[in-house]
Design a protein around this nucleic acid. Structure first.
Length: 307
RNA sequence: GGUCAGGUAGCUCAGUUGGUAGAGCAGAGGACUGAAAAUCCUCGUGUCGGGGGUUCAAAUCCCUCUCUGACCA
């Protein structure tokens, strides 16, 4: 019988997930699956706090540097790909460790998303653009009205009128002709059992670390990195570049804000991001909070996996 | 020393003819079913610079003190 356990290390940005996972590798034969929506992109290294080359070579990492900044990705793809990687790792007798702070990806992997037929990509983008136009011209109320009329059950669920989610539902309805709400409750289980380990430092300490790390990123050439990506021909409007640290540098490059302001904004937006990540932790049912990082902690995690 | 302009939420400021105060930003909390580092929702009591006076009632009018800025000496 194959082991279905998966070690998951999560927590807010700058909480020390990467270091923790690398340290864990000293106690067991692990491979890391990155659950990070930005580290999947090539060229985005400094601003995403991606592990460096040395760290990447020390332990086998998956789902880092797999896409160019103009390529689309999704939680669904993450769930699909990471699942098969995990089964493969396990089959080879190694220990899979999911590490990252993208809560939605982790949820999609273990709890599954509603199984829906594949949607044609091009057509979908056309519809999404149309709906985004509606949003710009008529506002989110209008989008919500549209959803209300075609699928009131979904509308009920999206009562905050979040345009992203309303658009997603409308997209599905337009493409398939079915109600989006019909897919609810049809999640496909991964069959994997997550063992959650959460790093969640005291807010004060975390914020201090964030501020410090942001200064380091700018010192280490974050602006240059962004300039380089733009010079490669990638539009600064890409979703991948709508990322903390990158968007602020783009504003700086466009002359909209000063360097000082860019740094300050990056710190502020990182703090807000960290807070949102902490909120994600609320919905993890069972997890162990990591407070001590001694050898006992690590060997216990490995032992738990093997049980 | 004199004149003027100011002193209201952590910050920038609103506050109509007197009826004990409200926006933006910051901050906090939350949501999340294929864009998620995204996107969205909720939350505003503070000696209205201090003291005194007028008034049923003062952030608002009067007096005084104090601080800041500009200008004049």
């Amino acid at each position: 019988m194959m082991n279905k356990n998966v070690i998951v290390i999560t927590g807010p940005t700058a909480s020390g997930k990467t270091d923790f996972a690398l340290k864990l590798a000293e106690y067991g034969d692990i491979e890391i699956i990155s659950a990070d929506s930005r580290q999947i992109y090539r060229y985005m290294n400094i601003g995403t706090a991606k592990p460096n080359e040395d760290e990447l070579s020390r332990v086998k990492h998956h789902l880092i540097d797999i896409l160019n900044p103009d390529e689309e990705f999704s939680a669904g793809k993450f769930a699909e790909i990471s699942k098969s990687i995990i089964y493969d790792i396990t089959a080879r007798g190694k220990i899979p460790v999911v590490t990252g702070g993208t809560g939605f990806y982790i949820k999609a992997l273990f709890e599954g998303l509603s199984s829906i037929s594949d949607i044609e990509n091009e057509k979908r983008l056309v519809i999404r653009n149309e709906l985004n136009d509606v949003l710009i011209n008529n506002g989110k109320e209008c989008l919500f009205e549209m959803l209300m009329q075609s699928d009131s059950v979904s509308a009920e669920k999206y009562s905050d009128k979040n345009p992203r989610r309303v658009i997603r539902a409308l997209e599905y309805i337009k493409l398939t002709g079915n109600k989006f709400s019909d897919t609810f409750g049809k999640e496909g289980s991964s069959g994997l059992v997550p063992q959650y380990y959460v790093l969640n430092p005291a807010r004060e300490i975390l914020y201090k670390k964030i501020n410090q790390r942001t200064d380091e990123m700018f010192d280490n050439g974050l602006i240059k990195e962004v300039v380089k990506i733009i010079e490669m021909g990638y539009s600064f409007e890409l979703n991948s570049l709508n990322t903390v640290g990158y968007k602020e540098c783009i504003s700086l490059i466009l002359g909209e804000i000063t360097l000082e302001r860019a740094i300050e904004l990056t710190k502020q937006n990182t703090r807000r991001y960290a807070k949102r990540q902490v909120t994600w932790l609320n919905q993890i049912e069972n997890f162990e909070l990591i407070e001590d990082k001694n050898s006992n902690t690590f060997s216990k995690i490995i032992d738990n996996y093997k049980m």
